[in-house]
Design a protein around this nucleic acid. Structure first.
Length: 561
RNA sequence: UGGCCCAUGGUGUAAUUGGCAACACUGCUGUUUUUGGUACAGCCAUUCAAGGUUCGAGUCCUUGUGGGCCAACCA
């Protein structure tokens, strides 16, 4: 067997090129740098899988670094949630770091910058500074504080640090170039005053470093070789390099920032700000609501780490704008769940079916295969009796021959059971079918090997025995937004596209083998879809989440007509 | 009106770096099937446009066109 050479994405090409230009493989180091201001979402899964995947590919360490420079938004709850999600995905970080670990070093370097006349304290209002900053097409003008003496700058910065000033009264800025075509180079702010307690450093600091000053220097401190971020940071690269130049020591690894396009997904939003709004306004029950595109939401919905990782690998990494269709994610979860989930029978929308020639009071336990895709999954027993539930949709009083299900005068096999024939049905005053009367062929029992049992009938239905079934809560989810790109409309807010039917709660009847199922357990409800037990489930009341439906050619056919 | 980035099927990515446009998803046709599932087979593009370099261009150059990003004491 020849090994097909795996194609590389542009990031991997960059690394391969660095390696062939003499960069030492042992110096490779990556990082995943979330800000703990929200939960990780499916878009982060790409970044996680990129960075940790690179670590695996090159046997290089990957740090988990929290970018915690803004105490106003960041919380320990998010740190814990992020760690849990990364672990759940199956990745191991080399060391757990925090940008806040470097506050002292960052401060010392800032003092150096002032001494080298590369930074100054600006005491104007943010409005004044905004005006001086110019616009993308007009150059900025110098701040009146730009040439303040080193001594004054030093003393003011010291006072900022000591908490002598109110928020917003002073900032430390880098002295670069107010006429640069890159707005970020127009004397960017390095430090601002914030009298807020930080989740790790508490009230030790009254000044906090800005992202640009922090990120590259943190990469440098950790000796990260390649620092990957999303495209909107491309313009920051010039500043990243400028800051690095001020502290760089030739004997060390110089981190390199490169940018890739963030992944967008159809029928949802992936912006922590927008997701937070859904949580705060109660549109969903929390960050882990199964409709949320967060890792924790997907986990609760029934997605597996394997499916998320194979999905991330399939969609890849590139630089162009994109909207990944959710059907691709759904393919990966179906693919995995098809292999691992036990099949069970459950009826979501029941109608009573009576087998008139089946002995009253009799019951038998039939053999049922747990998973046709996995022989080692074994068998189980399911109870059969005279009165059953089947899906309303599986019966029609009359239908054409395209309808492979039950109709009066027609035959169908009950999965793992007998071939039955519908004789009649009864209806209520509104014409709704309330009961179906059938006869069964006692010799047609599945697996019995009789001639009758080998007969081919076109349809096979799932069912549950009414007497044995467990009434359970089932939560049916649909996409959270009705629009393919809810946040891409200039004239409409994404909140206007919320799908009012994204959650439907019903009572369903499941086979008794499910009695002992535990939260997180995954099943295929035959002919319906994949479901998993929700954390709300108790021993008294089972609660299932529908992860995803099975592919359904019949439904497609129906839609066309 | 300045700067930076991007452009390959309906969608997302490839193309041994200049050598027959490939993979997956979706959709559509069939086959198999005690899940209208799964599995299997087949179908769906002259790579944004126009020039140029070259024996040869998705790939290099030029000019357009279209899209994204940049004026938070956010990251």
């Amino acid at each position: 067997m020849e090994e097909a050479p795996k194609s590389l994405n542009f990031i991997e090409h960059i690394i391969e090129e660095d390696l062939s230009n003499g960069f030492l493989k042992k110096n490779l180091r990556f990082r995943f740098p979330p800000e703990p201001n929200g939960y990780l979402h499916i878009g982060h899964a790409s970044s996680i899988s990129l960075n940790f995947g690179l670590g695996l590919r090159y046997s290089a360490p990957v740090n988990l670094r929290f970018d915690d420079t803004n105490p106003a938004k960041e919380e320990t709850e998010y740190v814990e949630a992020i760690k849990k999600d990364v672990k759940w995905l199956g990745y191991k970080w080399d060391t757990e770091r925090y940008a806040s670990d470097y506050f002292q070093q960052l401060y010392d370097w800032a003092v150096q910058l002032i001494k080298k006349e590369l930074a100054y304290v600006d005491s104007q209002t943010s409005e004044e500074m905004a005006i001086q900053k110019g616009t993308p097409t007009e150059k900025g003008t110098d701040s009146p504080f730009r040439n303040q003496s080193v001594a004054d700058n030093l003393s003011l910065f010291e006072k900022m640090k000591n908490g002598d000033f109110k928020e917003g009264t002073h900032v430390l800025r880098a002295k670069i170039d107010m006429s640069s075509s890159n707005m970020l180079m127009r004397d960017p702010i390095i430090y601002r005053i914030l009298h807020k307690a930080h989740h790790r450093t508490n009230t030790d600091w009254c000044i906090y470093p800005m992202y640009d000053w922090t990120h590259g220097e943190s990469d440098y401190i950790e000796q990260v070789s390649h620092s990957f971020c999303t495209l909107e940071f491309a313009m920051h690269r010039e500043l990243y390099d400028w800051f690095l130049d001020q502290v760089y020591d030739e004997t060390k690894v110089r981190p390199k920032q490169r940018e890739f396009a963030r992944r967008n997904f159809s029928h949802t939003v992936v912006s922590k700000r927008k997701l937070l709004k859904l949580v705060e306004e109660g549109v969903v029950s929390g960050w882990d609501d199964p409709r949320m595109p967060t890792i924790s939401g997907l986990r609760r919905r029934g997605y597996t780490p394997e499916s998320i990782k194979s999905f991330a690998e399939t969609i890849g990494i590139a630089k162009r704008d994109n909207v990944v269709d959710v059907s691709l994610l759904e393919f990966h979860i179906r693919e995995h769940l098809n292999k691992i989930s036990p099949r069970v029978m459950a009826v979501l929308d029941p109608v009573k079916l009576v087998i008139t020639n089946y002995p009253e009071g009799e019951e038998e336990w039939l053999d049922a295969e747990n998973n046709p895709e996995d022989e080692s999954a074994g068998d189980r027993k399911v109870p059969f009796s005279k009165e059953l539930y089947i899906e309303k949709q599986d019966f029609r009083e009359e239908a054409n021959r395209k309808f492979f299900r039950l109709k009066v005068g027609g035959e169908v096999r009950l999965k793992n059971g007998y071939i039955i024939k519908a004789e009649s049905c009864t209806k209520d005053s509104d014409g709704n079918i309330t009961e179906i009367q059938c006869t069964y062929d006692p010799k047609s029992k599945s697996g019995s090997g009789t001639e009758e049992s080998l007969r081919k009938v076109k349809g096979t239905l799932h069912w549950v025995s009414i007497k044995h079934a467990i009434a359970s809560e089932v939560r049916l989810y649909d996409r959270l937004f009705t629009d393919e790109t809810p946040d891409a409309h200039k004239d409409k807010d994404y909140m206007e596209f919320i799908n009012p039917e994204s959650l439907k709660v019903i009572t369903a009847y499941v086979e008794p083998s499910l009695k002992t199922a535990l939260p997180g357990d995954k099943f295929q409800f035959q002919r319906l879809g994949y479901f998993n037990i929700d954390v709300d489930s108790t021993s008294d009341k089972l609660v299932f989440n529908r992860t995803v439906t099975l592919r359904d050619n019949w439904a497609k056919l129906q839609q066309k007509n």
